[in-house]
Design a protein around this nucleic acid. Structure first.
Lengths: 99, 99
DNA sequence: ACTGATTACGTCGCACGTAACAATA
DNA sequence: TATTGTTACGTGCGACGTAATCAGT
């Protein structure tokens, strides 16, 4: 999930340096994350040749589809948090059902 | 993401042992994962008191919402994989644009 | 006492930052 | 040579399995 945010930053900036700054991290970890994501997905996402950071076909698909997944993820977090606040799990009160 | 699969297994089985077996792992790591997930979400998901594994309100919400997220995640992986296979990133051929 | 969940502990892999390197303009 | 991306390396946290412990029936 974090990988996707990093990927989106790079895909939008088309620049590892600016993306890393935007994400509050350094370039090397970012580069590694992207590589891992590519390996995990089994697909090259960026074409780094030619001094350019260009999207591959797979990268374009991911750029188009990733935001929806991130939004849904955020939505889920919000719903769960809300439910937990509305019905806070009662702290253990072993006596409550007796008295 | 993996956390959600673990959570769903426990939520469906309502039993850490069977869930762990289904997931191909041991109970202790599973228990830890669930605890981490709960801490990360800031919400109790299960009520382990009474020798029962019962869903809390937040847990119920997650049981209802998680499958959609997992499906979308799987869909994304499929789309990316397909795009990568349809347009395999060309291996570096520095001479191709010359000859 | 037995079944089931958690905590304790050692190990491995991932993620980060800093530093050194390679490649492109 | 300056800029940009990657590899190298050491450190810390997360995840796993095995073993020991706690809780409920």
């Amino acid at each position: 999930m974090r990988h996707l945010e990093c990927f989106l930053a790079v895909g939008e900036e088309r620049h590892f340096g600016r993306a890393a700054e935007r994400l509050g991290m350094e370039q090397p970890p970012l580069s590694q994350r992207i590589r891992r994501l590519e390996k995990e997905l089994g697909a090259e996402l960026f074409d780094r040749s030619g001094g350019q950071v260009a999207l591959t076909a797979a990268g374009s698909v991911l750029m188009r589809e990733a935001p929806a997944l991130l939004r849904q993820h955020q939505r889920l977090r919000t719903l769960v948090k809300r439910a937990a606040e509305a019905d806070p799990a009662e702290p253990p009160r072993p006596w409550s059902s007796i008295y």
